[in-house]
Computed example of a mutant assay.
Amino acid sequence: MKPTLHKGQLIRWKDDHGFGFIQPDDGSQDVFLHITGFKDVNRRPQVGDFICYQLTASKDGKLRACNASIEGVTSKFSSSAAPKKSVSRTVDKSLSLPLQTLLLSLLPGLGSIHLALTTGNPIPLILYPVMSLITFRLYADDKSRAQQGRWRRQENTLHLCEFMGGWLGAFVAQEKLRHKSSKVSYQVVFWVIAILHIVFWLDWLFFGKALINLFFGIASRG
């Protein structure tokens, strides 16, 4: 049977002792990694690296990583073509992030401008960039805490900031910092929040606030 390949982020690394711990993408328990568990690579591992690895049991029966490699760092014996492909994928992704962010912010941006012009209420126009900046900083802080093994930010706090208008900043943070982007349960809640915002502005701009009036009509009758 072919060994299963796992992936996770290196959240702790003691270079002077040659060992650290990987946080698996599937959210399972942190995995011990020793420098001898690496294949030949061109540099030493660093906190924040994404590691591909297999699992093996040590003499005391505990699981540890083996046959590990650093994502994006080629083996000393790899062909010279591999780095070019990796760089190409990185460039493509960096170019697509601004475009994706622009498309996602289009409806909220237009809706906020329209609301400000028609009702004189500038709150959403101010709230979106402010909350996005706050949420991005919270993501960065939470990732830093994870890498240092400190207490983490509560997910409910991050979701509340997203709901209050910071979901665009959260999206950028997930893509740029590679944080909270692979946890399925978290992503479900995040995208529900994002879709609620988009549907709200879609209704405001194109459907004459029909869904909003329906909701408040049902709420008032209840």
Rank of each mutant, 00 (worst) to 15 (best):
P3C: 06
L5V: 14
L10R: 00
R12A: 04
D16L: 06
G20A: 04
F21D: 02
P24I: 01
D26C: 07
D26L: 06
G27T: 01
F38V: 00
D40N: 08
R43D: 00
R43W: 01
P45V: 03
P45E: 00
Q46V: 01
F50V: 06
F50L: 03
I51P: 05
Y53M: 02
Q54A: 08
Q54K: 13
S58N: 15
K59T: 13
L63W: 04
R64C: 12
C66S: 15
A68E: 04
A68D: 03
I70F: 06
G72W: 11
V73K: 10
K76V: 09
S78Y: 12
K84D: 13
S86V: 15
V91D: 05
K93V: 12
L97Y: 12
L97P: 05
L99D: 09
L103M: 14
L104M: 13
P108T: 02
S112I: 07
I113L: 13
T118G: 08
N121D: 07
P122M: 12
P124D: 02
I126S: 04
I126N: 01
L127V: 12
M131E: 00
F136A: 01
R137V: 09
L138I: 11
Y139Q: 03
D141M: 08
K143F: 00
R152H: 02
Q154H: 12
H159I: 03
H159V: 03
F163M: 07
A170Q: 10
A173N: 07
Q174W: 05
L177C: 00
K180R: 03
S182M: 13
Y186N: 04
V192R: 02
H197Y: 13
H197C: 11
L202A: 14
D203T: 13
W204I: 07
F206R: 09
K209S: 15
L211S: 01
L214W: 15
L214Q: 14
F215K: 05
G217S: 09
I218A: 12
